[in-house]
Design a protein around this nucleic acid. Structure first.
Lengths: 160, 160
DNA sequence: CTGAATCCTAGCCGATACTG
DNA sequence: CAGTATCGGCTAGGATTCAG
């Protein structure tokens, strides 16, 4: 059985203010610091954000230049893509190679840590693909007091 | 090498409007539908949200009653916790057992699908724990043009 | 081509009070 | 104990413009 070794209370709100309780993720200035010592929280922070998954997928497929990424994600505002790219860079997931060409030329690549993230993302992707219909279905059937619908396929997993 | 089988353009913005392109996630009413057919996006949607990880961890450790969860997460507004609980229920990750006691008594349990999510979360947690120092360090060292700092440990992963 | 600056909106979340 | 309602703010994200 999977084990989450998370003493969240401590990790989200360390008693010792000297802990690694600073604000990270500079996409916006944050008033309320969050996360910190919890691995799960950090991981979610890194791959969270509305379009990070898509961007990571781009780079993974060799779409490395900003302009190319913008072309593929033409429905998303370039500013937003750039913000996500910058955040990924700050987190050390990708880094940028700047060429002295004119016009300017830039390529993004995964760092080692970034590459180590890919298999984990694949797990998430697989889970999502095998369960998305179920989740969508549940969402549709759900009504405020419809707990009766769920136990049918859920009770099986109970053992008390 | 990990493979993400995501044709994002199609999955986020299906050409056929008849696709599973409805709005899910009723924590709030959404004006702009999102996600849909991409497994990764669905997975992130399910475990996303500021406190879902903590809540999932609670239930996993046997802290099943709302009042108990509220006690443990006493820094978080009960309303917010309830919203996340409701969303997890709507997504079919947990379900609620309602006892006819007075005062009211409720217990949350994982559905089968919910349990299948735990190992995946563990992967994320592990990745985060082994890389959080690196990420935090990067965040601190980062300055707008500090791409010079990263390639040092990043170049190694390049092969072109 | 790259990417910063400005303005704006929607939605997540926080605090409080209230019902059964 | 469990859950809802209302109000307000912060912030991620979207649209546009301009600079290097």
């Amino acid at each position: 059985m999977a084990q989450i070794n998370c003493s969240y209370r401590e990790k989200f709100f360390p008693a010792s203010q000297s802990a690694t309780s600073f604000n990270f993720g500079t996409m916006y200035e944050k008033k309320i610091p969050e996360l910190l010592d919890c691995g799960l929280a950090v991981a979610l922070k890194v791959i969270g954000g509305k379009w990070k998954a898509w961007i990571i997928d781009c780079i993974k497929r060799g779409v490395r230049r900003p302009s190319a990424i913008h072309r593929e994600m033409d429905v998303i505002a370039p500013r937003v893509i750039n913000m996500h790219l910058k955040e990924l860079e700050e987190h050390g997931i990708i880094y940028k190679e700047v060429f002295a060409d004119i016009p300017a030329r830039v390529e993004y690549h995964f760092t080692e840590v970034g590459e180590s993230l890919l298999p984990v993302i694949e797990q998430l992707e697989n889970w999502g693909n095998t369960n998305k219909e179920y989740i969508h279905r549940n969402n549709r059937l759900y009504t405020p007091g419809s707990c009766q619908l769920l136990p049918a396929n859920a009770k099986a997993s109970l053992n008390n």
